[in-house]
Structure formats: structure tokens, C-alpha cells
Design a protein around this nucleic acid. Structure first.
Lengths: 131, 131
DNA sequence: CGGAATCCCTCTTGATACTG
DNA sequence: CAGTATCAAGAGGGATTCCG
């Protein structure tokens, strides 16, 4: 039999850096929302802007460029005047969205209790501060 | 038949805010790594500090306090001298780790290609800047 | 329409030193 | 051992303006 070490080639700390590389990308304020919106279908710049409530032009521009750089979304320009630019999830982006959808489901299932725990924690902390 | 709207009670924009609430928590620099380390078993403060390479005392302290506030990890103090404080994942923390593990797997499967795409993207961008 | 450039401010993080 | 306090630096993000 082969040693487990041959299959388990990555150390834990390597996985840490790996995961952080992706978390740094999708952990910003807007990336996950943009991915979720585009999972419903391709959108042009201003339509996407309207779909992602609260985002500024600058941040949408920055976010889609970074996602395109990582091959998670595609950017298609029709050279008309004025130009039409369409953004869509790539296959890689769709596969990532599948996992994010699980995170959404987990959040919906847990967030109410988490918020209660937060209040409880804050109440306990502030009552202790009064001592 | 019941309207789909009765089941689909949350709007997309509500889910956006929901998900961001959790992403804001685990999207910071250290939370995910701490959760992954504690999934291997409970650890005391300095052991956890050694397990999470590169973290400072201050950031570990801040991170575990926030994770405890959300009920993702537990903090147990043995009132000895000097004190022993043990951190462990809660049931909720373990269930979240299950999803993070999928994210780790996705990252391991995709990161090499992502990094290649990044280089390609940057090379194309810089060659265009020379024009 | 779909951006880029600039300014500015806040929040996160890190370094360091101190403590029960 | 397990933290807290203080300070400084840097990145992320918002508002505004300009452009092809």
C-alpha cells in the first residue's frame, strides 16, 4: 500500500495559505454578491449595478475586474456605440457559486441564533464592565 | 398548489445582507484558519497561537473573542494559577467547518489554474499599457 | 454606456510594551 | 499563561469628477 503521505501531499499550513488566497478574493465586501447576481444570468454593467444594491460604480468596476482576472466571470464587449459590455459567470464561477449557495443556506439556518448569541454575549460583557 | 412565493420568503437582496453578515465575520484575515485548526481538536491559547503561523497575540485574542461571540467556538477557563484557557469548536462551528472544508477542496482543485489565469491577465494588461 | 482618476477617511492589522 | 493597552501604518472603500 502507498503511504498516506503520498496522497496527503499538502501540509495544513499550506492549505491555510491556499484557502486564504481565495478568501482574500471573495472575502471583500462585494464579490460574493456579484457572483450570486450573475448566477441568475448574464448582465450588463449598469444592470448589474442596479442588481447589487448599494454598490458604487467604482467598486463594481474594481470587483468585476478582479473576478475576471481569476477567471470566475467573463467580460464580453460588443464594439457598438455606445458599447455593450456583458458579464457572465464562467464554468469555474458557477462551481464556486455552488459552494457559496451552501454558505447561504447555512447562514439562513443559523443567523437568527447567531444574532441572539451576539446580543447575549454583549449584554454579559457590558454588565461585567459595570462592576 | 401553494404559491412558490410562500416558500421563497426571502428576497434576493435579503439573502445578500444575510450572507454578508457571515462573510464579514469569517472573511477577515484569521478566522477561517483558526476554525480549521480547532477542527483538529481543542487547543489552549499559546498552542493555538503556534498552530496559526504568523498570527500575533493581539490578533488571536481579537479573533477568538469574535468567534466566541458568534457561538462558533467555546472558551473554557480552568481557574488554576497560571490559568488554563481552552478553545474548542462548538457544534455550530463544526457545521460551518464542513462547508469551509468544501471551500478548501475547491481551492485545491482550482487554485493552480487561477494563478495561471492571473499571470496571463496581468501580462495582457501590462503589454497593453505599453501601447 | 461603461468606465478611469483623484481625494479622503475609516477600519483592520501589526509592533511593541505591559499585566494579573 | 493568557491576555490588554497604545500607537502607527496600510488597505479597502465611498464620493466626486472626468473621458471615449
Amino acid at each position: 500500500m502507498a503511504q498516506p503521505a503520498m496522497v496527503e501531499s499538502r501540509e495544513r499550513s499550506d492549505r491555510d495559505e491556499l484557502l486564504r488566497d481565495v478568501m482574500d478574493r471573495i472575502g471583500d465586501k462585494w464579490s460574493v454578491t456579484v457572483i450570486c447576481r450573475l448566477d441568475d444570468g448574464p448582465l450588463r454593467f449598469n444592470a448589474l449595478r442596479r442588481a447589487v444594491k448599494g454598490i458604487t460604480q467604482r467598486m463594481l468596476s474594481t470587483t468585476v475586474r478582479r473576478l475576471e482576472r481569476d477567471g470566475l466571470i467573463s467580460r464580453t464587449v460588443e464594439p457598438t456605440v455606445p458599447p455593450r459590455v456583458e458579464y457572465a459567470l464562467t464554468e469555474r464561477g458557477r462551481s464556486l457559486h455552488g459552494i457559496l449557495a451552501e454558505l447561504v443556506a447555512w447562514t439562513e439556518a443559523n443567523l437568527d441564533e447567531i444574532r441572539r448569541d451576539r446580543e447575549e454575549y454583549d449584554a454579559a460583557a457590558s454588565s461585567q464592565a459595570e462592576q
